[in-house]
Every structure is written in C-alpha cells, then in structure tokens.
C-alpha cells in the first residue's frame, strides 16, 4: 500500500470479504488517505484496480436508533448509486461508479481532481463563477426533466476541475421520482446556499443559474420553477400566524 493508512476495522473486514473473498484486498483496492468528512460520510482517497478512486463510507451514527441507522445508510447508498448512474446517462458529469455495497454503505467511485465551487467563488472572476452557475442550472434542468432531483444542490456539492469541467457530487439525498415540489426545493436549496455563504453575489449567480436552467426547459419552464421556489419560501415559516389566519 502506497503511503497507506490503516483501514477502520469494520471497513477493512468488509473490503476483504466483499471484494476478494480471499485475503488479497490490496491488489483490488487500497486506501491511501482520508480525504474528508461530510455530514454523513467519510471519504478516502483510494486506488481501485490501479485507478485513482474515492471510497465513500457512511459509518454508523451513534445518535440514531440502530435499526433506523442501518436503514438510512443503506437507502442513501442505493439512492446515490442509482442517481449517479442516471445522471451520467443523461450526459451530466458525475464521478463514475466503480463498486457499490449497500449492506455496508460503501461506494467506490472515480476520483475527480478539482475544487469545490463554494471555495472557488471567492477565488475566481465573477464571469467564471457565472459560467459555472449556468452549467449547474443546465444540469439541474436536465435532471428535473427526467424526474430526478439532486436533493442537496449546494455550492459545496459541485466540483470544478482544473480544465473548467463541472461535476455534480453527493447524490445521497436524491429523489428519483421527483415532482414539482422536489424540483422547486432543489432550486430553493441552491439559492439559499448562495444566499447564506456568498450573500454579496447571490443575485447575480442565481440569475446565471436560471439562464442555464431556461436553456434546457425554456423560459416558461424556468418561470414555473421560480414560482414554485417563491411559494416554498413563503410557506410554513410562521405556522402560528398561519393558524391564526385560518380561524
């Protein structure tokens, strides 16, 4: 193992058993280093049959009820794998799947070298940020046309490669039978991730996003989703008041 790290014990067992059945895990997969930690998963930089890869493992959450925990981890893993597959079929850039093990909540996928859009925005020109927002808009519209919602479309879930290619990542919350509501929420989430982390640029970048969105579904389609976002944003915020109005 090159510059290897020790596998967390449960993961080590899983990979030995699942991938090889015999004690030959290193030729198939080796973990090189921990890359990062998301809200629900650990990411390892790895080599899979010699290719640079990312191993995404959703470890058990101690605060959850054990039965519910294994259910959620399994479902999210499957959802993510399915959504990545379908997105790639549409021509959207997303890391290719190498290996999926729902029982142990593991996905091994292509390693994409790039920078998170969130981190890129403050470091690049507004025109470049706008171009990327536009691409994200086209991706969102393409997914939505096929009845898929990303489910967590934030600036932290977009990866930009050195050559400018834009990748969507982290499909764990995707909805594969999305209705207008799910699509509206996708756009709402993207808008708010701009608002909360890049508040000085959000109007401009959201405009770029919508232009990309409209290039796929037309301006009427874009207007429909914007109307939905507006409705979502007005909803539910102050339930007490809504209840007061009803009586």
């Amino acid at each position: 193992m090159e510059e290897g790290v020790a596998l967390p014990e449960p993961l080590d067992k899983v990979i030995r058993v699942k991938l090889s059945g015999v004690e030959l895990p290193l030729q198939l997969l080796s973990l090189v280093k921990i890359m990062g930690r998301g809200a629900e998963a650990l990411l390892y930089y790895a080599r899979f049959l010699g290719y640079p890869a990312v191993l995404k493992w959703r470890p058990p959450k101690t605060y959850r009820h054990p039965r519910f925990d294994s259910y959620v981890r399994r479902e999210r893993t499957l959802t993510e794998a399915r959504a990545i597959y379908r997105a790639r079929k549409l021509g959207i850039r997303a890391p290719a799947l190498f290996f999926v093990d729902p029982d142990n909540a593991i996905i091994v996928m292509e390693y994409v070298e790039g920078m998170l859009y969130r981190d890129l925005i403050p470091r690049t020109e507004i025109d470049e940020s706008c171009r990327i927002a536009r691409v994200i808009g086209t991706y969102a519209a393409m997914l939505h046309q096929e009845g898929i919602a990303h489910g967590d479309l934030t600036t932290s879930n977009v990866l930009v490669k050195g050559d400018g290619d834009v990748y969507l990542i982290d499909f764990g919350l995707a909805v594969t039978s999305a209705d207008d509501e799910d699509k509206g929420i996708d756009v709402h989430i993207f808008l708010r991730s701009l608002e909360s982390a890049h508040y000085h640029l959000y109007e401009k970048l959201f405009d770029c996003f919508i232009k990309g969105y409209a290039s796929i579904v037309g301006s009427s389609g874009a207007e429909r989703v914007i109307a939905k976002v507006r409705e979502i944003r007005l909803r539910g915020r102050y339930v007490e008041e809504r209840r007061a109005r009803k009586r």
Partner: peptide, 13 residues
C-alpha cells in the same frame, strides 16, 4: 419497534 415513517431531510431543510 421502529415503525415505517417518512424521514424527510431536503438539503438543509
């Protein structure tokens, strides 16, 4: 028992 109920997290909401 943990029964089957909808668990809804949508992005950050």
């Amino acid at each position: 028992e943990i029964l089957d109920l909808p668990y809804v997290v949508r992005g950050q909401d």
